[in-house]
Amino acid sequence: MGVRNLFSTLLDQTREFLHMPQVSVPSVGEYLRKEIAQQVKEWTDDDETKWLKLAILNTYFKLECCVSGTHSMDHVALGPFGEYAMLPGLDCTFPGGYGGLPDCMLTSLPKESVLFHKPVMVVRWGGSYREESQEGRTFPVQVECEDGERFLADHVIITVPLGFLKEHHETFIDPPLPPRKADAIRQLGFGTNNKIFLEFEQPFWPPDCQLIEVVWEDESPLVEAGTDLQASWFRKLIVFLVLQPPERYGHVLCGFIAGKESEYMETLSDAAVLRALTDVIHKLTGNPHLAPPKKVMRSQWHSAPYTRGSYSYVAVGSSGDDIDALAQPLPEDALLQVLFAGEATHRTFYSTTHGALLSGWREADRLLSLYDTSESHQHKPRL
């Protein structure tokens, strides 16, 4: 069996533990390593070939860290891993970037209905807030922005990333969240996966190349990796996509890097990132005279104050029930005041754009059904 097929087969096996009452090990990473260690005993290759196969397997471990948005697959829970669902069909790229999606939505909304540069400081719920201009009308929710402006509403849908909630939920929502929801925020995983774009004057790859995978021959999933981020952060970057077509993008590679190494990369200057990756490419090609990239551009999801990472995963010690708990509106036994959407609230499509979009539709439908069936609310809801 080829190395790629071996890893793919083992990864498929990790999804078979869903709904089992007990699992042999807590994490996906531990399961994969245990199975690989058994496989190695049956290999009949020479030592050099064995080490190369293990190095390739280590690259696939790093690739899965990017997919899951985690530092290590040891952090990803084995039991619930099979609950994640792949959406059928091909990937969709928005012309002009992700901004095209909200821009499309905005065309159906009244002008001035969306406010920008209004970061929210606190969402207060369960209250009775009176609006000065509407005597006799009270609202249960008050949203206070960092600039001091306040908005009153019947309902608020919170869509901030889980990373932001992990840092600020105790002060961002008042009164504090019920213990079950606060526990879910703490227990679910939220990590960093960044992209690094490198633009070259001329390509060093052949015209039909779509993907460049990086294998470090001295690494193995069965050997603990070093922790010196300064010396080796770039080793976590394991694949470059060739952006196509070059007539549109130029000669550009897109690299992916996850985990603590990705977060460390964010602290470096563009020049330092460029130097490090130029060295990697010189090693990769065996050509120390290859011209360096002329430009570097990267995402910095962990540094961004309102994201603090990229997307969620079901961590060891958590389950899909925590995702459902996070999605539960407040208060739990009365009319809806605070609702929750975002990728981390979708039990099977967490970590994805479609999961985020579907969760927003879910909460919109929840509110629509409330007003379709309730005769007690004659006024137009303030959202």
Rank of each mutant, 00 (worst) to 15 (best):
T93E: 15
I185Q: 01
G148D: 01
R150H: 11
V123C: 01
H168R: 11
E135R: 03
P140G: 12
T107E: 13
G99T: 00
S128P: 09
L106D: 06
L90H: 05
E149V: 03
A182Q: 10
P140M: 03
L177W: 03
L101T: 00
P178T: 09
G97P: 08
V123W: 02
P95A: 04
G127R: 08
D174W: 11
I173L: 13
C92M: 09
H155P: 03
D91C: 06
G99K: 04
E112T: 02
G148N: 09
F139E: 07
V122E: 01
L165K: 09
L109F: 10
F116H: 07
R137P: 11
T171H: 12
L188H: 06
V143G: 12
F151P: 03
P140Q: 05
P161V: 01
P179N: 03
P179M: 01
Q187W: 15
C104M: 09
K118A: 00
L109D: 02
F116R: 13
Q187R: 15
L90D: 03
W125P: 02
G189H: 07
R186V: 10
D147Q: 14
R180W: 10
D91E: 13
R186H: 02
C92F: 11
S128V: 06
R150A: 14
G99Q: 02
R180I: 15
F172E: 04
S133K: 15
D103P: 04
E132Y: 14
C92N: 07
D91P: 06
E167S: 08
P140S: 05
R124H: 09
C145G: 00
